[in-house]
Computed example of a mutant assay.
Amino acid sequence: MRHYVTTAVFSEAVENLANSGGYHWMAGNYLKYAADELWGGRKTGCDLPVDSHELLALCAPRPTFVSYGIPEKGDAKWLVQTGSYKATIAAGPVFKLLGARDLGVSNDYTTEKMPAVLTGLMDGELAWRSYGCA
């Protein structure tokens, strides 16, 4: 059984990313997850073969910094800070396995609360910070 941390629950809808003019940022194969009638019917983020935390884990043990702004302060409304924070936590065990430091919080992304704005978790090779715009 696949275990998805962020794609299905917290992230931007695949069809929004692929059909909103940002499709040029994605690999061509990604577009099939936004099509209703192509490639065997409608697909969603749950059909993707990888999840955000797995992509972050591929960076281990190299320094990896995940950072977000705040929509209420003028940053893009489509940002998904909660999902990215949970994915960063879930990638932590791979960083530890390879001898790198993670965020320094529990590995339970279901219970960890996102830190307050301007609170950085930046002591490890895997780091997080949410900042506010002026």
Rank of each mutant, 00 (worst) to 15 (best):
A76R: 11
L126S: 01
V105T: 14
D36G: 07
A90P: 10
P115V: 03
D123M: 09
R2I: 15
L126F: 02
W39S: 11
M1I: 11
T119I: 03
W25L: 14
G124T: 11
D51F: 00
S84I: 04
Y68L: 08
S11T: 12
G40W: 02
M1C: 07
E54Y: 06
L55M: 12
P63W: 00
K113L: 12
A34Y: 02
G83Q: 00
T6F: 02
S11K: 07
G74H: 05
W25Y: 10
D51T: 04
K32M: 13
P61V: 05
P93F: 12
G21K: 12
G41M: 02
A91K: 03
G40P: 02
G74L: 07
S67W: 14
S11E: 15
T64P: 00
N19F: 09
L58P: 01
L103C: 01
S67T: 13
L38Q: 14
W39L: 05
A127Y: 00
S84C: 11
R62D: 06
V66P: 01
Y33D: 02
M26C: 13
K32T: 11
A100D: 07
T82H: 10
Y30L: 09
K73P: 01
Q81G: 10
A91H: 06
F10K: 00
G21Q: 12
L58C: 13
A87H: 11
G21P: 11
A100T: 06
A87E: 06
N16S: 13
A127T: 01
V9A: 13
G99M: 10
A60Q: 09
D108C: 03
A127G: 03
L79P: 00
V50I: 09
R62S: 12
A100G: 08
L118F: 10
A76G: 04
W39M: 06
V105K: 03
R42D: 01
H53F: 12
T7Q: 14
Y4K: 13
L31H: 15
P115A: 05
